[in-house]
Every structure is written in structure tokens, then in C-alpha cells.
């Protein structure tokens, strides 16, 4: 017998029918009066920063961020005429990408990188910025999973704040392996 058959037959032999229980109702999940405000508040609490901008002001906002972090190796693939990626993604100082939906309860932004280079850039750049549309902010993770198509994305992740660790004496350090800062432009 193959290991597959051994494992499955052992599981079948060990399985007992579940005593019938009423499935708890999933009627009301957490919602907020102002999901965008909650999103910004939670993002601050996890070490990120939300910046509300009008569509026309996104480029100006990014230029300001480039100056703030003092970046000269930038990949800006959000707007038309975006800057081309540098030859070595690992040397990126700032990467600006478009996010999908955002979640108010935990400041997570759903991001589906279009290529493996985009995926690397989201993790290797010193600083990352995401642009999300204010109207796509949902209240909670139940709504989030109902509104994304995670399965056909191939790879997609929720990003909530910059990379972090507290593995040395529980001292929070921002920028463990991935970006040292995460800015989310909330486009109105």
C-alpha cells in the first residue's frame, strides 16, 4: 500500500460521526460607522500609515513619499507612465503598487502581484506603498473573502503594516525581512 492509502485508510478507521450540533449563526459580524477611519486607525497601530488623497493627487503624494524616505531607486507601477523597475529588484528603495480591497477591522490590503518580479518587489523593497480605493474598504474578513477571488489569483496576500518581529525580548522591531515602512494611499 502507498503512504496515501495507508494514511487515508487510517483516518477513515479512526473517524467517528460528529454529534449533530446546531451550526452557530454567523448573522452579525463587526462593522464600523466609518470603515476608512477605522482602517487608518488600525494601520497606525500596526506600524503603517494611511494617507487620504484625491485621484489627481496620487502622483504628488508618491513624489512626497519619495522625498520623505530619500529614495532614488523607485519603482512606481501604479499610474500610467509609471517608472520602470530597476534591473535588480533587491536594491529597490521604494516600490509603489496598486492594492485590491482593504479591510477596516485589521488594516489588511489584498494584493495580487501580477508577476514574480512584482511579488519580489513587495518584499525586497526598503519601503512599500500601496494605493487602494476608499470605496473598496470592507468591514471585516468575512466580507473580504466574499469579495476577492483568492483561488484564481494564483498568489495573493493580505498585507497589514510593514514587516515586523518581536523575537528578541519581545521588543517590536519594524522591518524584519521585508519593508521597513508601509504607506497606504486611500484614494477618494
Amino acid at each position: 500500500m502507498s503512504d496515501r492509502d495507508i494514511v487515508l485508510s487510517r483516518i477513515r478507521a479512526a473517524t467517528r460521526p460528529v454529534s449533530s450540533r446546531d451550526t452557530p449563526s454567523a448573522a452579525s459580524w463587526l462593522t464600523f460607522d466609518d470603515p476608512a477611519a477605522r482602517f487608518a486607525e488600525v494601520l497606525e497601530s500596526v506600524g503603517g500609515r494611511a494617507v487620504a488623497v484625491a485621484p489627481a493627487a496620487l502622483t504628488t503624494g508618491v513624489e512626497q513619499l519619495v522625498r520623505d524616505v530619500g529614495a532614488d531607486r523607485v519603482w512606481f507601477d501604479v499610474a500610467q507612465g509609471g517608472i520602470e523597475p530597476p534591473a535588480v529588484v533587491a536594491e529597490l528603495q521604494l516600490y509603489v503598487a496598486r492594492g485590491g480591497i482593504a479591510v477596516a477591522e485589521n488594516a489588511a490590503v489584498w494584493v495580487v502581484p501580477q508577476t514574480i518580479r512584482h511579488r519580489e518587489a513587495l518584499l525586497l523593497a526598503e519601503h512599500v506603498a500601496l494605493a487602494v480605493e476608499r470605496r473598496t474598504i470592507v468591514h471585516n474578513m468575512h466580507e473580504a473573502y466574499a469579495s476577492i477571488d483568492a483561488a484564481t489569483a494564483g498568489f495573493g496576500f493580505f498585507i497589514s503594516g510593514p514587516s515586523k518581529t518581536a523575537d528578541i525580548e519581545q521588543a517590536l522591531v519594524i522591518g524584519a525581512h521585508g519593508p521597513r515602512s508601509l504607506t497606504v494611499f486611500v484614494v477618494t
Binding site: V42, S45, V46, V103, E105, N106, A107, A108, M141, A150, A153, F155, G156, F157, F158, I159, S160, G161, P162, S163, K164, G178
Partner: peptide, 9 residues
């Protein structure tokens, strides 16, 4: 935390 920094699918 409300969610981990990365939740990858």
C-alpha cells in the same frame, strides 16, 4: 494583533 503582517494564499 488584528492579523499577521502577511497572510499569503
Amino acid at each position: 494583533q488584528p492579523i499577521t503582517a502577511y497572510t499569503s494564499h
